[in-house]
Design a protein around this nucleic acid. Structure first.
Lengths: 236, 236
DNA sequence: TGTACCCTTTAACCTTACATTAACAAAAAT
DNA sequence: ATTTTTGTTAATGTAAGGTTAAAGGGTACA
């Protein structure tokens, strides 16, 4: 299950360490937003919804605890993991007071961090069924349920979609009536942009067109050399 | 939220350290049962209900991990904290695999332990409010009593379920009509996600399907690569 | 101290689901 | 006119799932 990548806010002022950590997490299927200090961290937090925050404690301007408090005021539930330079008792206690879910002493093992992230996400997973609406799309007379991977026509029998079909259609739906660049799908879904993945994508476009045939007001147009466009004609 | 004293099982072979720790926790309003080794620990665990287990990893006869696994078989939910002699990565990862909630490196600060205990108890308190009551499910024409582990069809004779059958069906029921991710069942019920546990789970799905056959409006669907979905068709 | 029983895992074999690649046709661009 | 890009169908190989049976392990009870 790596359906949607969870979004992580990483606030770390050391540019080298921060970048490496971000890349490592990205490699592990997480979407990471990296802020270089507490101020920036809070700005980014306000602008987006995160599944987890990883905060460095020692930072200029605004330390991790202060940031955590602000974050808690906005959202009492986001899990927070602190990165502390050393095992200072005061830090640890302070961290728990502001509602830390865990903390790690630098230097730490990246695998351990991953385990902690997984454990925490799972803990939260059960009660976050709330935002399931993000996976449901209306496309003309079709209903796409992108979480359960099926497509219904006129409220009838659902047709099962394969993972790739599903993700591609979802991406098209997200850009409904607008250009969905080839490159976007290839990097997001295929994670590689070359001749073969590109051909593979064309095959999937053909499959989707078949699925969408029942509604003649829905079609996938090609924009030569650019990408595809999911069009829904609204005739009254 | 002031409630009755939480009961803690402390398994620690060092008599001096164990006694001191027990006294310290007792002073802090916890009821502590102290076992001197893994064997004794498991005996005491079976005889009582605990809110938390604190297990030393290094113990003669039966180490903390082995004990944890046994405990998990009896009770999938008790929080477990490990005490490890040093920060060995393998130990930490192993701990998480058997479902640790936290771990502490000796020597540790007693106040830190207290905070962790509080944090964990609180966590359990909040998310167990949600689903602790849920041991009874109506699944189409079936009634599942997950506490007594039986399944009734049309109010008839109850069929006994094994622990794994029961937990799996319960998890599916909790996600009725929605995706129940493979990984969730594997980590929650099997406590490990590998090829074999995964196959084992498939075997259990087959068993459940047999049980559910009498009601043709109830079925367990597979979502390839994601998990399963317990569907109840409501036709009037 | 077996041995009968229950539960779980492992094995085996088969089916289905998916993604990629190939192959060839049709459009579009140059 | 010919090279690129796209449309579409079919073939292939691999991975995941379905199911049944046998093996393994623990427990209770004779």
């Amino acid at each position: 299950m790596e359906e949607l990548n969870k979004k992580i806010l990483l606030v770390e002022d050391d540019p080298n360490f921060g970048t490496v950590l971000k890349d490592y997490l990205t490699m592990n299927e997480y979407t990471v937003v990296h802020a270089k200090n507490g101020m920036e961290g809070f700005e980014k937090f306000k602008k987006d919804d995160f599944d987890l925050c990883i905060l460095d404690v020692m930072m200029p301007y605004k330390d991790g605890f202060t940031l955590a408090k602000e974050i808690r005021e906005k959202n009492a539930d986001v899990p927070i993991i602190f990165l502390t330079a050393k095992a200072m008792k005061e830090d640890v206690l302070k961290g728990y007071k502001v509602g830390a879910d865990d903390y790690l002493n630098k230097p730490f093992d990246s695998e351990v961090l991953l385990m902690k992230i997984k454990a925490i996400m799972q803990r939260k997973a059960t009660d976050s069924v709330a935002d399931s609406k993000q996976f449901e799309f209306k496309i003309g007379k079709f209903d796409l349920n992108s979480k359960l991977r099926f497509l219904k026509f006129n409220g009838g029998e659902p047709v099962k979609l394969s993972p790739k079909e599903n993700e591609l259609l979802r991406l098209l739906a997200l850009h409904e009536n607008d250009l969905m660049p080839r490159e976007l799908a290839l990097t997001k879904i295929w994670r590689d942009d070359n001749y073969f993945t590109s051909r593979s994508m064309d095959v999937y476009i053909a499959k989707l067109r078949k699925y969408l045939k029942p509604d003649e007001n829905v079609e996938i147009l090609n924009i030569h050399g650019e990408g595809f466009r999911l069009v829904v004609n609204q005739n009254a």
